[in-house]
Design a protein around this nucleic acid. Structure first.
Ligand SMILES: [Mn+2]
Ligand SMILES: [Mn+2]
Ligand SMILES: [Mn+2]
Ligand SMILES: [Mn+2]
Lengths: 152, 152
DNA sequence: GCATAATTATAGCTGTTGCTATACTCGATC
DNA sequence: GATCGAGTATAGCAACAGCTATAATTATGC
């Protein structure tokens, strides 16, 4: 049915094996999105008020409290947080490491968008989604651009 | 429990009502990601070879064929594609419109990353995820930057 | 200390996105 | 025109991410 492997791309479409790489990477990033947002938010809440309560996590994420409870259970199973019944949730060493890394990347993406001329509000909102799909190479390019343009 | 509404942000955390907006936008974008990728890919396959078969869609997305079959059923229910049993799938008018719009945004994001100095391979992979989280304002900033720097 | 409010836990549901296994249909070949 | 391979449909499963309703627990106020 399909043409035998020819080196001539007979249209605007790239090679299927190459194409699939991008989609796989995007799916993998999507799988990690929530985890990254949770640990980052937990770290911020602890840093801000000394504790991360389910109700506050839920309020900031815009989801119901049982949704948070279920996710925290999963994060605990994955060794990223530690929770004691009816008490707050804390980050493990690896959870803290992921939080620091995620927060730094988030910060760079948001700063980059602002440096590009996007309004702070839009930068804040778009960065929340974009951050999870920015590779190390792209992040470095973002950082370079933001540093070069920053008025600081 | 929580402080009464005070105008003084007592930490690095922004206002919860503002914070939740970003997460809601990211969740909404995530909800539309797959739909946009499907219609864009279907449009490309039709433009390339005149037809969009499930096996080809599956091969490019990196998923199994029944996964594609189920999604096409949903897209048909949503009025984005039309499929006849054991025949190819076609885009409706609104499906075509979404495809054109998604493809254009995708193209701009990828071109922007390249203009920023990211390698073509990384630009291709990162754009596949980033595209879905780029607002109209950010897209316009991307376009301006890419146009201003393009050597064409 | 006890009543009550706030918080967390749990049960049970839905919808989405993936999978494997298998049945069905279509078209090409002989 | 029967066969066989490619492609499609369907069934059934699992993980994930959300929800409501309600029970259990902790914390607060009197
Ligand atoms: Mn983040
Ligand atoms: Mn995020
Ligand atoms: Mn795309
Ligand atoms: Mn995409």
């Amino acid at each position: 049915m399909r043409e035998p492997p020819s080196s001539a791309p007979d249209g605007p479409l790239i090679d299927p094996e190459v194409h699939v790489e991008s989609f796989r990477q995007a799916r993998e990033a999507r799988r990690l999105e929530l985890v990254e947002d949770y640990v980052e938010l937990i770290a911020d809440l602890i840093g801000d008020g000394g504790e991360a309560r389910q109700v506050d996590i839920a309020a900031r994420l815009g989801v119901a409290q049982p949704t948070v409870a279920k996710m925290l259970k999963r994060l605990a199973e994955d060794g990223l947080v530690q929770q004691r019944p009816y008490r707050g949730v804390f980050l493990t060493a690896s959870g803290e490491a992921l939080a620091v890394q995620s927060r730094e990347r988030h910060r760079i993406v948001e700063r980059f968008l602002c440096a590009l001329g996007v309004s702070p509000e839009t930068a804040r909102r778009d960065a929340e989604g974009i951050e999870h799909h920015v590779s190390a190479e792209t992040l470095e390019a973002f950082r370079r651009f933001a540093d070069g343009r920053s008025d600081a």
